[in-house]
């Protein structure tokens, strides 16, 4: 896990998530903007997965539990996909809110993943 990349992910997932929640609450159905924000969050998670697999080879190893780290990462990768399908099936304002809640959940999980990899020594 590369720390600056994680902060970049948070810098996209948090405002993107808030934007989706607000747009959903004012009544917007899922649009290219809100779907795109969620897709970007997903894309960066997949890059993070590749980075997490490659980083230990370059000497950047996790300080905490890898099992816990990957449980978070795999769950986080699943969430935007589920929310995206939901938004395609149910084109309502609540689907937009759900996209936002998903992005914010991913942000919380990324924060925990960063703690596990970079902060927490066991």
């Amino acid at each position: 896990m590369i720390e600056w990349f994680t902060w970049l992910q948070l810098a996209i997932a948090v405002p993107g998530g808030l934007l989706c929640v607000v747009l959903g609450l004012v009544g917007r159905k899922p649009t290219d903007l809100t779907m795109g924000a969620t897709a970007l969050v997903e894309l960066l998670l997949i890059v993070q997965l590749a980075a997490a697999i490659a980083a230990p080879l370059a000497g950047n190893t996790a300080t905490g539990s890898l099992l816990e780290f990957y449980t978070y990462l795999i769950s986080a990768i699943a969430l935007p996909v589920a929310a995206g399908f939901w938004a395609l099936v149910e084109r309502s304002r609540w689907s937009t809110v759900i996209l936002g809640v998903t992005c914010l959940s991913v942000a919380v999980m990324l924060y925990r993943m960063n703690q596990i990899w970079n902060v927490q020594g066991r």
Binding site: T71, L79, A83, V97, I98, V101, T102
Partner: peptide, 28 residues
């Protein structure tokens, strides 16, 4: 309908979080 869908989504996320945590705890 309506906000019920959001409730379901949040429940789904919490179910995932609880499952993930208990999986890690029990496996470790």
């Amino acid at each position: 309908s309506g906000i019920g869908r959001l409730l379901i989504a949040v429940y789904g996320v919490l179910a995932l979080a609880a499952t993930g945590r208990s999986f890690v705890q029990i496996a470790r």
